[in-house]
Write a protein that binds this DNA or RNA. Sequence first.
RNA 1: GGGCGGAUAGCUCAGUCGGGAGAGCGGCGGCCUUACAAGCCGUAGGUCACAGGUUCGAUCCCUGUUCCGCCUACCA
Length: 891
Amino acid sequence: MPLDKIYDPSKVEEKWATHWAESAEFQANPQSDQPAFSMVIPPPNVTGSLHLGHALNTTLQDILARYKRMKGFNVLWVPGTDHAGIATQNVVERQLAKESISRHDIGRRAFIEKVWDWKKTSGGTIISQLKRLGASCDWSRERFTLDEGLSKAVSDVFIRLYQEGLLYRDKRLINFCFRCQTALSDIEVEHEETNGKMYHIKYPLADGLHYLIVATTRPETMLADTAVAVHPEDDRYNSLIGKEIALPLTDRTIPIVGDPILVDREFGTGAVKITPGHDFNDEAVGKRHQLDIISLFDSRGRIALLNNLPIFEARADVVKQLEAQELLIKIEDHRHAIGVCYRCKTVVEPTLSTQWFVRMNDPKNSLVKPAIDAVNNGEIRLIPDAWKNNYLGWMENIQDWCISRQIWWGHKIPAWYCHGSDKDQCQLICNQPIVAATPPTKCPHCGSTDLRQDTDVLDTWFSSALWPFSTLGWPEETPLLKKFYPTTTLISGFDILFFWVARMIMMGLHFTKQVPFQDVYIHALVRDAQGQKMSKSKGNVINPLEIMERYGTDALRFTLASMASPGRDINLSENRIEGYRNFANKIWNATRFILMNMPNGEVPNAPSQNPADVWIRLRLNETIQSVESAMDRYRMDEAAETLYQFVWHEYCDWYLELSKVTLQANETREGTIATMRSVFSDILALLHPFMPFITAELSPDFSQGSYPTDKALSFPKSDPAFSSHPDSVATAASVQVLIATISEIRNRRGEMNIPPSEKMSLLIGGTSAAGGASAADSKEDAIANYLPYIKRLAGIETVTFGSASPKFSSHFENGWGTFHLLLDEARIKKEIERLTKVLQKTEKELDGLQSRLNAPDFIKAPAEVQETLHLRLREISQKKDQVIAQLSKME
RNA sequence: GGGCGGAUAGCUCAGUCGGGAGAGCGGCGGCCUUACAAGCCGUAGGUCACAGGUUCGAUCCCUGUUCCGCCUACCA
């Protein structure tokens, strides 16, 4: 079936995506004795839909997976999704809101059912999009963080951490999002610079005579103040330490304390209101001075003391009251960072609350220390390693991790509390949670059967921290776990380095006593062409599915791969994608050309000695080696670029063009077809990890029978014996001279605008170094083989050999001799112009070189450097002499 | 405040044992040379952010400055 003239990805991609998703060829085999290679996908949110971050992440993993598979590894790539507690709950709540229903209206059980329903109908979107991208995951092993097995792992880990004292429940200040109605961990709070106000407020002393001025950005919290702090060495205030303040708007008095740690004498007024119930710093001050803690907000962020006003209205109200009492000195503009919820961007409030925490700062460093060591000693490699310092810095300052969330969608906390009535018997003990895998039937202390499970669920990141081993069956000793754990490589974006990667390292080391992965490849963010972060509000979001539609999935994949240079964000520009779409078309048309020359699908098997065939095989070998070297260093960008250059600018531009000569002659034809086909077949294989669709589509044309699966399709091997053989090397060198010769002639034709249709004449003489007619004769034989190539590719009709030096010609020299491109008199003016330009350039280059060589201390440079520079000097001055000779001859 | 990354052609980006600056796109000129006009051939275009330093020699190493991005932090 003849191929279309233009490659249309939409005609083939769907077919292959479906084929890969349904076939068993990517299923890993725990019984195989091939070397294992394993990865787990960073599970996208089940609510997700494909964005460019997913596309990049998945493409890089797929390239690696397919590459390793073709290299003979037993590859396991585990796919799956994350239940994404808050995000998913938000989605379903929004749906209910359309019917004016809140989750509380229908209750917890019914709501959870709704979420599962939603998951069943809509949760597969992201997975099918990953499949559409060509991801060669083992889809038979798809996991979900709320699967039974994974939930068992979560429960086990929770219980063990509790038993080891690494998990505790405590009433502490935590970040609370009143919109999501839940506590958040530290890193779930984003800091946003905003223009706020700084309020200066008069705080009268209890004696009624003096006052202090405090400065605050959150005046409404003053209702929960329990002290004012000053610096003990601040002469303005230190005599007041120990005195009392009559806190305005309340009937309370609060002490003035001296605290050198918190108070900065230079900032604000040097006197700080202390609100331990709503500020992390103040909480610390409160601990140091045994201050009371007052909580202002109810669970919805309203202040009971102010008629249940929400925070921002309460602020306005407080300001109004202060003004009325003439206690407000001034309001200044003030730029500062406020914390917002990473899910809904609502301002979060530090709030006193009882929550579960993972202890990071335990004296034995059980979780943190091993995770630091593993990266320090290279057991886990971060790539690029610039991330190491970042990682270590964060780990060294890590705080306890708040893991309980007051939402409904997620893993329920396996803890029960006794609500028994016999308070006298075990009043204290019954307040302790009963942590167990299965619901206890009665309180072990008082025997009461009134036990109620903790209503909170766990932070989504708690379950994803176990992902590399929970997906393989842990805590069971499954064959899968044995064969594929620790996983080989993790590919992740830097944005979840702390949310996810660091926690997997801690949990992995603690529970499996092994690293969860050996290499962590950290890729960057995809931005728009101007380097702006893509966001819905800016309207600059590029939808990968739309790109795939317009340019093809291979083009998108190749773009992402080739732009993924380490440590740098990707600014995705559409013209780059278009360029790689053209590349796919180039491959398509190269196929058409080759098939045109093997009309019956017959593949001759004769090895060829045609120079161009030898040359391209040698270059193929070198390309294979470069690609392998790049892949081993996780330089997918380098590998992609190398392939692009080789395929387009060597194989297509030169080799196929040169081959048109040998294809014309019966005695050379077969060998060329064989080489052309086999090299191209290797090219398709080399490109397959990057552009799986088009290569899968075209490969069958170059092999007997049907499309070979990845497992059968092996990565091309380089052939060092052939590459280093003196005959191959010599032939390839000659072809390089041939290419240079053709380029020189084309260059002159181009400058003079001589169209290809106009055939020209060439006179070839001996090299000036050898000189004389005999030298010219000896060259004649050497060049003879190459003349047909020169004629066809450079538009030459007649070639003569001789030592004459024609007056009207453009001339150049190389290893083969002296070439005169014969011109008619009318063109000489153009040639003189060209030569004058060349002369200027040469002189400039010569000057630069001369001055470097003449530098007084240049003798200190290494001998070989001196040598090459002198050599270059000789070459250039020789060239200059030639140009001058040419010019003088023509005048 | 601290830390990290970036600044190279008009645009998007490569480029480390320090020794002649590259690609794609765009521009310009010429070609339907029958695989491909999503193509072919040729060509122009850069004080490698700025200022110092080390060196025989710096896009590359060191110091400082400016601008941009990100992370992080208790300046109320």
